[in-house]
Every structure is written in structure tokens, then in C-alpha cells.
Write a protein that binds this DNA or RNA. Sequence first.
RNA 1: GCGCCCUUAAUUCAACUGGAUAGAAUGCCAGACUUCGAAUCUGGAAGUUGAGGGUUCGAGUCCUUCAGGGCGCGCCA
Length: 542
Amino acid sequence: MEVKELLKTKIKDALNKLGVDLDINQIDIENSKDPTHGDYASNVALKNARLVKKPPVELAKMIEKEIDMDGIDKIEIAGPGFINFYMAKGSITGVIKKIFERGDDFGRGEKKNCKVNVEFVSANPTGDLHVGHARGAAIGDSISRILEFDGYDVTREYYINDAGNQIDHLAESILERLKEALGMPFDLPADGYHGEDVRLVALAIKDELGDRLPECLKEEGFIEELKLKGMELELEKIRIDLKTYGIVFDVFSSEKAMRANGAVEKEIEYLSDHIYVDDGAKYLRTTDFLDDKDRVIVKRDGSYTYFLPDIVYHVNKLSRGFDKLIDVLGADHHGYINRMKSALMMHGYSSDALEIELIQMVRMMRDGEEFKLSKRTGNGYTLRELCEDVGVDAARYFFVMRAASGHLDFDLDLAVKQSSDNPVYYAQYAHARLCAVLEKAEDISLDVSCSHLSEQSELDLVKQLSLFPDAVKSASKERAPYKITNYIHDVAEKVHSFYTECRVIDRDNIEVTSSRLALCQATKIVLKNALHLVGVSAPEHM
RNA sequence: GCGCCCUUAAUUCAACUGGAUAGAAUGCCAGACUUCGAAUCUGGAAGUUGAGGGUUCGAGUCCUUCAGGGCGCGCCA
């Protein structure tokens, strides 16, 4: 049993003896942040003093008197009524053995039997992914990894808006670029895509068509062909960039497919009780639910707003058996939340069947100043370039290390720096250092019971390792990958301190050495597990 | 004007969801390599948590009123 659970049970039993029956989930055990407050602390006495009609300190003392002290060195009542527990060394180091037993699964949550669909990136296939997508991608994938690790069944999904006019603009842009490539007069549409990337796509199409190109340009249906071809090529680039970035989607859904077979018309039919017509347009009465304004779903000219197929899409996702949908979206979509939830409620789903994680803007900083364009190409700064410039590990770590709800300043200079200033290297270096030591002492066996650990820095590290399952739970519950990077940083810090203070390999003292080696190995496992959750590698050598 | 988010050290951010003396990193100052990787470590200075009021044993956290910033408020996606 974990130490915290053990303490909870002990407290519950003690309370029982005092004639107080308290649910075990009502008992909080905190990890003391201050070593003078022991290893663990509880505020049960403060919270429940009224049950015994005595001051908190009195209740704390009563609990202290009744509690089973097995595994506990000392108890102190402090402040207004906190109970501080000082654990016996064996209770603390027990976690090492557990880490060895569970290995890659240490920290993994129990199976939840809950299917979650995480939709993220979903960028229009009309050009390269940029740094805004990169943050959403890093966070979306980390959330997926964390939920998976915590015991959920996760599907990563990408929604392709291939039915809107963005694709028309793409095709028109390619068409003009093709004319350009043939030396013909050309005119890029004002709302088209003027970037270098689209020009290259056009050149690829030109190569493919070869001599047929001039003929094709005259054909009526050629623009349709360009839509398909252009999108396919753009999507392929996106797939490759994401893969390099460590992200693979399980499902790509297409808006076009969503609209097929009269699905949208059926949806209108289904929602008819919530629809009214005003000034020739059809409105959905979302204000009956959570929205502050009714929304147009069919325009006066009979075409649909993007909202309608989006409803079809979300209903489709839920109909595929997911218990929860998570959309990772840019912060400018916040108006969208209640609108979509309302629509789903019309289908009888609860308002929390859909959860939307809003990602704030990224500002790229170089030399202390914001920049938007690439130095090399003069175009927008893309995910691909970012990976080339700072590496995948640094990019992903930086994007998730702050809460998604806050703006992020991405310090490019810091990200390329190979020193402790750079949190990624700080963490990876800790891992590599441990590997180096373990490699050097391969012939010495490990003492998994860690019976010869006594230094403060050793015990601090052990305690830090024992916090990993908590960190996972909290990151999962709050969809907050940054909790993992914070955790990683804390582990790395403790590793470096331990390493400086305690020489691991001492061939004249094999007992201590094997305990320390076991600690190193356990730490290595935990660090690797944690880094994996944010999609960052754990290198053995750097 | 209405709605949502934000405001914590010089800077970028934490704070276990209401807990003890508000913590890290960067930057600044002072130290530590004959030894497992100095890509490291150990100290130090730095705060009226934007301002006021309220709720209670206890508030950065909850309520409220202000001030400042961002985003949204399309028959755009």
C-alpha cells in the first residue's frame, strides 16, 4: 500500500476509536513542502473539529493518542492543528522496490474503462503547420499520453476541414502558381495562399502532370482535381511533420465525409424542434441551453454555416462510443464552447460530454524580441523549422511547460542553449548522468530494499520518486501536462543534488553502493516514464 | 456595452483546488572541479500576490466593487 493510503487508514481507524466515522476519501494527506513539517501532514483535525465539538488541536491530540504507530517514527501536532507524520525510513524507501516491480508501468493508473477522444491540431490542409499549431499539438498529444497512462482508452483525432472555401482558395492559389511555372501571366487571389510552401506544392503537381499540364489548365474540372491533389499533398506534409514531432493520429476525419449521405439534412431534421427561421435564415435556439445568443446554421442563401457540419461531426464522434470528447482549440474559440455544448445537449448528452481545452497564443522570442517570420525563408515560422532549430525535445518540452491557459513566450535562445538554464537539458542530463554511473558499475548488484540510504539528499530523492503517481493523477485530472514538467524538474534537481553530495560508486563500501545504485536505477525509470508523458526522449548519453 | 480568461520577485511562471513562514527558473552577488559527466552543485539579496471591502479558525485561491491587459460578441472558419 502506498504510504499516503496507509496513513489515511490509520487515521480512519483512530477516528473510529474516538467514535467518529469518516469516509476515507474525506481524509487528506499532503506531502509536506517544509521538512520541519515531517514527511506527510494532515489537516483532518482542522476540518473535522466540529464533529467532536472540540478545538482542532484537541482533536489532533486525541488522534495522535489512538493512532497505530507502526511504520511511523514520530508525530507532531503543529500550528492550528496540523498532524505531521515523520515516517520510519523503511516506509519511505519501500517505493524503490515498487518502482522495480512495475518498471515502465510505475505511476500508471488503473483501467478506467472510459473511452476518450482527443481532437487536436485539426489545421486546414492549406499550408505548413506553424508554431501556434505546434503548441496545440504538443499539449494535445501530452494530454493524450497522460490520460492513456492514467488508464483511459484514448483516441487521437484530427478533423480535416476539406469542404469549406479554404480549400477553394488553396486550389485557386495552386492554379495561379502553375501558370507562373509555365511562364504565363498569373494573379494570386487576394484571400489565397501566397507562401513558398504552396508554390512548391504547385511545382510538385507540375512535375507529376508533365506535358499534360497546359492541356489540363484549359479543362473545366481541373480546379476540382487541384483541390483534391493539393489537399492530399498538404496533408501528407502535415503528417510527416507531426510524425517527426512524435505525434501519430489514430483517426483523420473529413468534413466532406461528414456531410455525405445527407447527414447534414438529417441533422436539421433532428434538431427541427430547436430551429426557427428569421429573415430567411435558420437559427438554432442554443439560448435554451448554455448559449447567450442563438446561432445561424443555415444562411439565407441556403448554404450552411461551419457550425452545422461541426455539430454533425461531434455527434458522430459521440455515436462512435466515446464517453468523453476533448477538443484542444485556440483561445479565440472560447465563444464556441457553449454553442457546441448546447447542440450536444439537444441530442441528450450532458454538458460535460464535451470538454474544450483552450490554448493561449505563443510569442516566439529571439534576442529578447518577438518575431513571426523565419530568418531563412522570410515566410511564417513553421513547426518544421522549429524542430530543425531547437530539436523536437526542446520544442515539445517548452510548449507544455506552462499552463495552456496562459500566454507563452517561447525563448528560442534558451531552447537551443545546452546548459542548466535550459530545463530540457537539465532534465535529460540528470538521466544521462544516472546512466553513466550505472554503466560504470554494471558488475555491482543492486540492493532494491535500499537499506543503506541515510543521507538527506538520498531520502529527498526517494520521496520525490514516490510523488510520481500523484503527479500523474493530478496532471490527468486537470489535463495539465505542465504538472509533469514541473515534476520532472523537481526530480532532476534532486538527482543533481544527490549526485554532488553522495558519491555513488565506492568499491570499499559495497553495501551503500548497491543501495545507491538501486536508487539511481529507480530514478532512471521514473524520469524516463515522466519524460515519455510529454513526448521528450530520455537519452543515455548526450 | 456584454461575456470569458488573465494580473504573484527585475523577468517568465508555480503554489497539491481554502492550509502552516507564497516557491522555482532566469538575471544579479558570493563560493565549490586531483574523484562516478561542472551540460553540475552550495549560499545570498529580491514580495503590501494590481487596489479596496467581505465570507472564517485560516484567503494568492471563494464573493463583491474598482483599475489595467488579452480574446470573443459575423448569415467568416
